[in-house]
């Protein structure tokens, strides 16, 4: 028995004994098509190298089983270098844009429950699945984007952080208010990070710290400005 799969518009047949997509890609490269190009590393879901789309949905190739007629494509919204390999230089740029790092260490006593608050977010593997799925990033490459905002949240909510101002400043423009809260990123995150919730919380934290949604500010037209270009992205559905 075998499965038929399509990799970037090319058909392949894979013996049923190979039931994992990364294993199939490696098998095909070694035995049928030496030119087939993809990235991988740890084979165990932590290095973030092998994210692809399977039937339109972002997956880690190493953690994904094969089904007959699977269609395998590269991630979206990132420049394709070759076959399934995308240019991931957005990672450093976006993390820098969101200033996702510890700015100034506090002297707070940290408990396990404090660690738990940022536990899931600090499991991010930077696989870019969330960027591929993001409809805002698709149309606006300036958008800070899902993983960089989730990581900003990870540091802003870290009780170790004494100074959140740089991060909160950084995530206002093309950041928390540009997200439509559609939750597409949550659905594809291999680490089950609740990115949409984190961005909503960042919006609340921003308001608590005196920032405001530019869509509501007088300069941007406010509530009544139905013809405002920002309205379509208004995350709160007002």
């Amino acid at each position: 028995m075998s499965n038929n799969i399509k990799i970037i518009n090319k058909d392949y047949t894979i013996d049923e004994s190979i039931n994992n997509i990364l294993e199939a890609l490696i098998y095909l490269k070694e035995n049928q098509n030496n030119e087939l190009s993809f990235k991988y590393g740890c084979k165990s879901g932590v290095c973030g190298s092998c994210a692809i789309r399977v039937n339109g949905v972002e997956k880690l190739a190493c953690a994904c089983s094969i089904n007959d007629n699977d269609i395998i494509e590269p991630l979206k919204n990132l420049p394709i270098l070759k076959d399934l390999i995308v240019d991931d230089s957005n990672i450093v740029n976006k993390l820098d844009q969101s200033k996702s790092f510890l700015e100034e260490k506090s002297t707070n006593d940290i408990s396990q429950s404090d660690v738990d608050i940022i536990d899931i977010e600090s499991n991010c593997i930077l696989c870019n699945s969330c960027y591929s799925s993001c409809p805002v990033y698709e149309v606006n490459s300036d958008f800070i984007g899902p993983f960089a905002l989730a990581r900003a949240y990870r540091y802003i909510e870290d009780k170790k952080e004494q100074n959140n101002k740089t991060k909160l400043d950084a995530i206002q423009k093309s950041g928390v208010w540009d997200c439509t809260l559609c939750g597409a990123c949550d659905l594809v995150c291999p680490q089950n990070i609740t990115i949409k919730d984190d961005i909503m919380k960042l919006q609340n934290i921003s308001v608590q710290n005196g920032y405001e949604n530019p869509a509501f500010s007088s300069n941007a037209g406010g509530f009544d400005s139905f013809d405002s270009g920002d309205f379509g992205f208004n995350p709160n559905g007002f």
Binding site: V46, D88, S89, V92, L95, K99, F101, D119, R151
Partner: peptide, 27 residues
């Protein structure tokens, strides 16, 4: 340890710190 993601959380913290300091990367 950091649950059983010790190495991952250490490496990502180092990566974030490298970005903070403006370390130049050629990947």
């Amino acid at each position: 340890y950091s649950s059983d993601y010790t190495g991952l959380k250490i490496l990502h913290t180092l990566f974030d710190t490298s970005i903070k300091l403006g370390v130049k990367f050629l990947f």
